[in-house]
């Protein structure tokens, strides 16, 4: 394996948990039974490996952008596929919702009104957090994604996870403690 190829493998490996968290956050609870975030990410990374020749020439920010766009396509394709199977009108609505979410996410990540250095720094922090979320136990991660990435209230989180509100609050707090620990001491895990 050449240097640039191993670099690419390292970059893809680094972005895997980030993409996973993004996919998990994007997929609404109603679709969770039909769509598997890890499958979508796996498919995306495989496509990246197939396009390695093209990707080795890019820096990590461009690779990340390529991966996001591939993940978006895969996710939308998967939802469309579900729709043809079940022909559910609500799914059609969700496709446009997810498309809008992706475009807003892209706008946020490539903010033209903010200076490039600032964008880079903020995206770096964001990636660190999204990737650290994957080191958390499943229930803590799910609760944090619902609470902080999907903006659900404690009550809604508790309902979705079929827990009492106090149990959900404990879960969230412990999840945050652990996440903060990962962020404050990177490499600990």
């Amino acid at each position: 394996m050449t240097d640039s190829e191993s670099n690419l493998a390292f970059t893809l490996n680094r972005f895997r948990p980030v993409l996973l968290t993004l996919a998990e956050a994007m997929i609404s609870p109603a679709l969770r039974s039909d769509l598997e975030a890890s499958d979508l990410v796996q498919q995306t990374l495989m496509e990246a490996h197939c396009n390695a020749e093209q990707l080795v020439l890019m820096n990590s920010a461009v690779v990340f952008s390529w991966l996001r766009s591939a993940l978006q396509h895969n996710m939308l394709d998967a939802i469309k596929h579900l729709r043809t199977q079940k022909n559910d009108i609500r799914r059609r609505l969700r496709t446009s919702e997810i498309e809008a979410s992706w475009s807003r996410l892209e706008m946020m990540l490539v903010d033209e009104q903010t200076s490039p250095s600032e964008v880079l720094q903020r995206n770096e922090q964001l990636c660190l957090m999204l990737s650290a979320l994957q080191t958390l136990p499943d229930n803590q991660r799910t609760s944090l994604i619902m609470k902080h990435l999907r903006g659900l209230s404690l009550k809604e989180v508790a309902e979705a996870m079929q827990l009492s509100e106090s149990a959900a609050a404990g879960l969230l707090h412990r999840g945050r403690q652990r996440l903060a620990h990962c962020l404050e001491e990177p490499g600990h895990d």
Partner: peptide, 22 residues
């Protein structure tokens, strides 16, 4: 402690949340 952690994560996650929900 709760305040610090809540704000830390909230601040980091806000851009993504707004993209998903805004």
């Amino acid at each position: 402690e709760h305040y610090r952690l809540y704000n830390l994560i909230e601040l980091l996650a806000a851009p993504v949340r707004l993209a998903l929900a805004a």
